[in-house]
Amino acid sequence: MAPVSVGSTTAPRRAVSAAAAYGVLAVVAVLFLVPFGWLFLASLNAEAGLTTEPPAEFTLRNFAEVLNPDNLRAFGNSFVLSGGAALLTLLVATPAAYPLSRYNLRFGRPVLYALLFSTGLPITAIMVPVYGMFVQLELVDSVPATTLFLTATGLPFAIWMMKNFMDGVPVSLEEAAWVDGASAWKALVRVVLPLMLPGVTVVFVFTFMTTWGNFFVPFVLLLAPEKQPAAVTIYQFFGQQGEVAYGLLAAYSILYTAPVVALYALVQRTLGGAFAMQGAVKG
């Protein structure tokens, strides 16, 4: 008897609350979309200002103009920095994660705590000492040194993720490989890594995306215009005194954003689950 009466009173109420929920979600979605409007419309407008308005004439001229050799070089620099940091992260984090995942190390836990602790430290704060250090070591304007620094700052989290993904690969498969005479290294490369390919991809893409989007680090460490990545070049569009070419700024922003959106969509689609974030932490 009770369920029936409850059902009959809550059903309409449920419909109302569902409608309210959809309403709120719709409003939030629109509010979140609004700032994007300017970006897209201005990029197609040769006379764009700061207002969101449809251009008198839709044109791709901004994109054509932005794709000049200087800016293409900046994109190339971004790929070198981000790709370099992501690749280096894999090369360094994978072997480092292996003992943490597989061996019963006396210092295993302290190391994991230290890594986790490091992920919380504000990298912004160490940019002043890093700059000072780079000046004294004459490393300012060095792309390799900047790549190494970007790798190092992402490494604690990368090792942490990698270790958790590795924990998800059963050790028995590896043992079978040993029985067949494979060394620990061979087993890692041939058996463990292929099985945790989604995890490896997440670490790579995550590092690539954070490096690609990083403005402050290259802004401080790379001063020569021909070495600066897109993140810094784009700021000069904006920071220059005088008239800002907003159409160009918007077009450049879209081109600069496209790779990370594509990577995110790819990882999201193939691996699912919000960048596999939960997996990243919990293995």
Partner: peptide, 23 residues
């Protein structure tokens, strides 16, 4: 998507939204 956009682009978008002659 607001989260995936690089921070500096988010800055531009919000500048355009809130500037004196903005949206």
């Amino acid at each position: 998507s607001a989260w995936v956009v690089p921070e500096i682009v988010a800055g531009f978008m919000w500048y355009a939204f809130l500037a004196d002659e903005g949206t």
